[in-house]
Design a protein around this nucleic acid. Sequence first.
DNA 1: ACACTGACCTGCGAGC
DNA 2: TGCTCGCAGGTCAGTG
Length: 268
Amino acid sequence: MPELPEVETVLRTLESRIASLEITGITVRWPGVITGDIEEFCSRLMHQHFNGFMRRGKYLLFVMDDCILESHLRMEGKYYIQRPDEPLQKHAHICFDLSDGNQLRYHDTRKFGRMRILPLDTDLSAFHDLGPEPFDEAFSPEYIHAYRKNRNTPMKSLLLDQNFTAGIGNIYADEILFACGIRPGRNCRRITRNDEQHLVTETRRILQEAIAAGGTTIRSYTSSLGVTGLFQLDCMVHTMKTCKVCGSEIKVKRIGGRSSYYCPVCQK
DNA sequence: ACACTGACCTGCGAGC
DNA sequence: TGCTCGCAGGTCAGTG
């Protein structure tokens, strides 16, 4: 399930593979992926080049000649770069023919991912009501303080709120809260100034490490494999049975409709 | 305005 | 063995 680090990895991998290539054909095998008019989607992308590669939260943004292609992978969206003669897999929904003879194929088992066309001058700061990027200096202890103080929601829900900060999903939310020693169910009014500082530091550290770990997949990347990250292997709590620090049994609790893993000893 | 819930999807594993 | 059911999760519309 791609979150900020995975999206960043996918973006950088695609950049290394398809930068400046032209779209010479588009096949839509399952139109539900596309938000808006399908014909218009295809006609606006035809003969456009992949000029720029940007990320905002979990959104991939491909800057083309006359528009931006926005892509959200949601849970299981994946891009593959394959030869046109390689057999199409069941869940390959969109195929872009590229000017180097390859195809960029979008796969999505559960069909949750979406693509759409944006104007070239789209204001990405206000985009989808997304809050500051975790690495932006606007994501500060003062910002967290101002955002949380009049709210009444579990810390887990706060971290998943894309208006609070953009790019954190269920896995990293659990990891960040573990690193900060905060239980996911703790009300956001009941954290300290110290916690606010830790949240900034640990969020950046964990996401940075994950991007670095995901980056290693670029080296082993082959055209037949999906473009994904591998950070899930390094989780401290998410889907763990026992705590890697104290050995206690990890608890699972549904918070905000999400499974939340935490150590009852290390997290207060 | 804010907080919470269900719908969107498919595959997989548990339980009967 | 074969079926049903619940769960996985990001976002958004709908509800209170």
